[in-house]
Design a protein around this nucleic acid. Sequence first.
DNA 1: TATTGTTATACTCTATAACTATA
DNA 2: TATAGTTATAGAGTATAACAATA
Lengths: 153, 153
Amino acid sequence: MTTTAIEPPAEAPSGIDSSFLKTLLGYNARRATSAIMALFDERMAALDLKPVEFSILSVIGNNPGVTPSQLCAELAVLPPHLTKLLARLDKRQLLTRAVLAADKRAICLRLSAEGATLLAQAEVTVTQLEADAASALTGKQLKTLIELLQKIY
Amino acid sequence: MTTTAIEPPAEAPSGIDSSFLKTLLGYNARRATSAIMALFDERMAALDLKPVEFSILSVIGNNPGVTPSQLCAELAVLPPHLTKLLARLDKRQLLTRAVLAADKRAICLRLSAEGATLLAQAEVTVTQLEADAASALTGKQLKTLIELLQKIY
DNA sequence: TATTGTTATACTCTATAACTATA
DNA sequence: TATAGTTATAGAGTATAACAATA
């Protein structure tokens, strides 16, 4: 480490000013997301589901027969990452994979009975978690926040 | 891989429905943050600064003499991570580290002249990038979005 | 004993390139 | 030649535990 002795003696500020960062959308979005994801991990630990795994199960549940490439496009996940995620969910027997008759390269994804049950439980947990994460907001503010976030991506 | 042949032939849906996910604050926050961070990485590549590195330089610049533990608390970064980040910035000679006279365990961080120059350039880049990331929003909407995000964390 | 900062380590996330099999 | 999915690999982000120096 390169530390140097200086004169006059160094002194640390007592209150930290991060007002510039607080004016940035990126900084605030990152901090808020990080807080919500931490709550997600905590609450969803019992079901052993990460945010992206929940998203995958949700999309498959609402779109039986969806293919990995469709999932990648919809969730902005890269193919190599999705392959690993699907392998884990498959290993837990939460989904089934069947080759598409019309195009043997593609795979049709469906939830197993266990997968559908777990998704239903996860949705209950997510709903509660979301309410807690947004407890400082009114219902109208939450609606506004979500609409504005969607305009960004 | 465990793929099974099924009857009747599998079929992939043409349009994907992710309406449930779109109702979730966490999902939308993550997608929006991801989009902004991608733009940040792209625009800040020329200055070789990652989001957290920019945050660190910004806080040090506005709080000369700040200590690593203060940075950790303010930016929600864990000490081992900050140590590595500071080592990289130090190696690039963007900051100076001096032991605090009143408490020899603590370190006073300051920007070097090069660090101050780089921060000034980065602030210009960030300002433009932020405007582009939020181009779908009015000024009032952006202000509202930031205020609501701050209520979350 | 408690705190500051560091080191070591490990696990996850993300990204790229190269490969296969099918089309 | 292009596409769907996989494998291999590497880099970055994040977490915990253990440590040294200082208080």
